Simulated scan of single mutants.
Amino acid sequence: MFDRLRDDVRTALAKDPAATSATEVVLTYPGLHAVWLYRLAHALWVRDHRLGARLLSHLGRLLTGVEIHPGATVGDRLFVDHGMGTVVGETADVGDDVLMYHGVTLGGASMRREKRHPTLEDGVTVGADATIIGPVTVGENATVGAGAVVVDDVPPGTTVVGNPARPVSEADGDIEESAAADRGPSPGDD
């Protein structure tokens, strides 16, 4: 257990250039506190102490501004930077070494009792205020840009941006075509 706690602190120090010491991270990082409270709530959840798990989860949200449902599955070394407004739904699966910024939503797209939240594979980075909806998969080492809205699977190693989210190369092409249209015809185009 203590190895895991130390691992979480090392992860915060490695992923946040503003972190100056382990003591600072332990005392002042709400994303870290949210993950620790989630782990306690999840332990209750899997032992069928659902009300206690939900109450602890609610307390975690109140104290940190981060809501991680105790039924979600979260891997090792999740780092939620700043955290405020982050929501991780009940059937979400979050892999190892994932970095999420504030305002991220891993939301559901169904009212049925089924897999309805996203899966983030190992090494994923999710930018501030990104929304990932439904049982989609964000592949290993992929990046979701700030403010993106993801409704389809993201291949491993891909960066997506926009609403709806598209791979950067496609988004760049659309931006270039849109900018060209805004400029009007080029000199010599008749």
Score class of each variant (00 low, 15 high):
Glu90Pro: 04
Glu177Ile: 15
Thr125Trp: 00
Thr131Gly: 04
Gly147Lys: 09
Ala171Asp: 12
Val126Glu: 01
Asp152Pro: 03
Ala19Glu: 04
Ala43Ser: 15
Asn163Ser: 14
Gly89Phe: 00
Asp189Ile: 13
Tyr38Arg: 06
Gly52Val: 11
Leu44Cys: 13
Val66Tyr: 10
Leu120Gln: 02
Val161Pro: 11
Pro135Leu: 04
Val9Ile: 15
Gly188Tyr: 06
Asp96Val: 12
His58Ile: 04
Ala171Thr: 07
Lys115Thr: 14
Ala109Lys: 10
Asp189Gly: 04
Ala19Lys: 01
Thr28Asp: 08
Thr86Leu: 15
Leu40Gly: 02
Asp182Leu: 15
Ser21Trp: 15
Arg54Ala: 03
Val151Ala: 03
Ala142Thr: 14
Pro135Cys: 02
Asp16Trp: 08
Val66Asp: 07
Ser186Val: 09
Gly75Glu: 01
Glu170Arg: 11
Ala19Leu: 12
Leu106Thr: 05
Ala18Ser: 15
Val66Pro: 03
Leu106Tyr: 03
Arg4Met: 13
Thr125Gln: 05
Leu5His: 09
Ala165Gly: 10
Ser110Thr: 13
Val150Leu: 05
Leu62Phe: 14
Ala43Asn: 13
Leu106Ser: 01
Arg54Val: 12
Gly52Tyr: 00
Leu99Asp: 04
Leu106Phe: 02
Thr159Tyr: 12
Thr73Trp: 07
Lys115Ser: 09
Glu114Gly: 06
Asn141Lys: 11
Leu78Asp: 00
Val46Asn: 02
Ser169Lys: 14
Val126Phe: 02
Gly103Phe: 12
Leu78Thr: 10
Gly31Val: 13
Glu90Ile: 12
His49Thr: 04
Ala72Tyr: 00
Thr86Ile: 08
Leu5Asn: 08
Asp182Glu: 07
Ile132Arg: 00
Val151Cys: 04
Val149His: 05
Asn141Asp: 15
Arg50Lys: 02
Arg77Pro: 14
Ala14Ile: 02
Gly108Glu: 01
Gly123Ile: 14
Glu121Pro: 07
Leu56Val: 14
His117Val: 00
Glu114Lys: 06
Met111Cys: 06
Ala14Cys: 03
Leu27Lys: 09
